[in-house]
Design a protein around this nucleic acid. Sequence first.
DNA 1: CCTTAGTCCTGCATGC
DNA 2: TGCATGCAGGACTAAG
Length: 274
Amino acid sequence: MTCMYLLYMPELPEVETVVRELKSLEGKFFSRVVVHWDRTIEGSTVEFLEQLRRKQIAVVFRRGKYICIELNTGDRITIHLRMTGKCIFEPSERDRNYSRVEFIFSDRSTLYFVDTRKFGRIKWWPKQEEFLSQLGPEPLESEAVLKAFLSCKSNREVKKVLLDQAILAGVGNIYADESLFLARIHPMMPFVEVSRLKLKRLAETIPVVMRQAIENMGTTLSDYRNTKNMGGENQNYLKAYGQTGEPCCRCKTKIEKIVIGQRGTHFCPRCQTL
DNA sequence: CCTTAGTCCTGCATGC
DNA sequence: TGCATGCAGGACTAAG
C-alpha cells in the first residue's frame, strides 16, 4: 500500500463550512490589519489597509469558492483560499510561520489568514464596482445546473467544463471527479457529445455531492482545516478522487488516474466509458 | 473564437 | 543520511 500524498483544494463545500463559522465576524470592527506577504493582497496593499480602517463588517457570505465580507459602507472584501489558504482564529505554532495576513478586531479577537503556498488572494472591492460578475450559477440546485449545461455548447472535455467557474461557480477537482463518477460519465467525453439523459443525471448529481460534502464539513486530505483548525469528514466518502488503484465500489475495476488540463483526474474505466 | 502552456509557491516524495 | 529534482494545482495571463 503506497502512501498517497494528496493536496487539499478548498471547493464550494469547504468554503461554505468556513463561511458559516466566519459569520461570527458580523458586527465586528477592524482595529488593525497586518500584511506579512504583500502579494496576498490583490491591488494596492496601502489602499486595502486604508479602506478597512475602523470599518464594520455587515455580512459574511459565500459566492462560488469566494469568501465574501460586506462592510457597512457597502464595499466588499473577497478571500480566495486557492490551494492551501486557511482562515484560523487559533493558529498552531506551525500555522504562525505561514500567517500572511492578520485581521485584528476591536474586541481583540484575531483572524489569521494562513497560506503555505501563498496562492491565496484577498481583494477589496469598492461598492460601485461590478462584483464577481464572471461567475456562473451556484451548483446547489439541479434546475440551475441543467440550465447552465443546456446553454453550454463547448467542445471541451466535460471535466474541463465542470472546472470552469464561469459555467458553474464552486466545483473543483475533487467534486468534479466525484460527480462524473456517480453520473457515470467519462471525464474526457467532449461536453457537447454528452447525451441529454447523462447531462440531466449529472445536473442532479452535482448538488447532491455538494450538499453531502457540506453536511460532512468538507473534505480533508492534507491541509484543509476549518477556522478551529479541525478537519472535515467527507474524505471518508470519496468514491473516485484519490482512489487510484482501488476497486470501484460498483464493479471492482481499478480506479485509474489520468491528466486533463494539468489536473489529476480519477475515474472508473468500466463504469465511465467514452 | 478557441486551446495550450507558463506563472505563482512550497512541502513532501522520490531517486541516487 | 543528504542533497537535488519533480510534482501538485486555481486562476490568471500570454502565446499560438
